[in-house]
Amino acid sequence: MNDRAVNRPLQAAAYAFAILTSLLFLYPYWWMIVSAFRPTRAIMSAPLRPWPETLSFSIFTEIGRIGGVHLATYVTNSLVITTLSTLLGVIVTALGAYALTRRPKAPGFALIRYGFLVTIMYPYMLLVIPVYLVMFRLGLLGSYAGIILFLALGPLQFFLFEQFFRKIPPEVIEAAIIDGASEWRILTRVVLPMAAPITATVALITFLLNWSQWFPIMVISRSPDTYTLPVALLSMNSELGSNFQGIMALAVLTTLPITVLFLLAQKRAMEGMAAGAVKG
């Protein structure tokens, strides 16, 4: 394939198309960043100006309080909720998927797996509504615990682990059993060391996905005190007479950290997401 002569005009057309499409896909980011640094009136008079008139960071102090809550609170909430739900999700999903793959025929296990599969088929937004009632009954409404517990599980994460554990050769485990190793020892000494790379991938993907979550957080919260950045952004965007520049600045804050993280680990993230989906 590679040594075949490349058709030059066709190649030029392919590059033109790919470059144009990529720039169109990236333009919203550029427009968002530039708009965060331009006063609302300036944007109205010249929406296409490709860079700001002056470079001033004062907007980030202007939006220091949104909905009566400090901007720093939203940033902290985002970091804490995303980190803890990722940690919890990775541990719970790894153990669960491991048990379900090792003992698919144990009584009840098929039912657990089936319950999980049905849950991920249920329209997510409509699941969150009865989850509100469940949180109410459990006394978790308005708590960080409720939000973190709900965000812990996800389909991609489960399928990645399941796929990995299925590929472990049975002989490896059998050898350990013959050596008299307990299941706990097999898990911690044999399986988990092998699973380190997949665990890193799942943790990365869970972090990326949970950072973007908004609807369950909004529904489980009782006040903006437990809002994360996307939820704060949505409520700011829904206000009447909205501060356009402030919205763009908050959108930058919501997008930038996760973009940097993604670019640092893009290969792992893209390969992991493709692999997890192919399993589902």
């Binding site: 790919a18 990529s22 720039l23 980011y29 973007s212 952004l233 919501t254 996760i258 993230a269």
Partner: peptide
Amino acid sequence: FRLAIFLPVITPDVAGYVV
């Protein structure tokens, strides 16, 4: 090109749609 097309996938949907 691949990153340019994929980046919106990991961009928080609320932020993307607000823009």
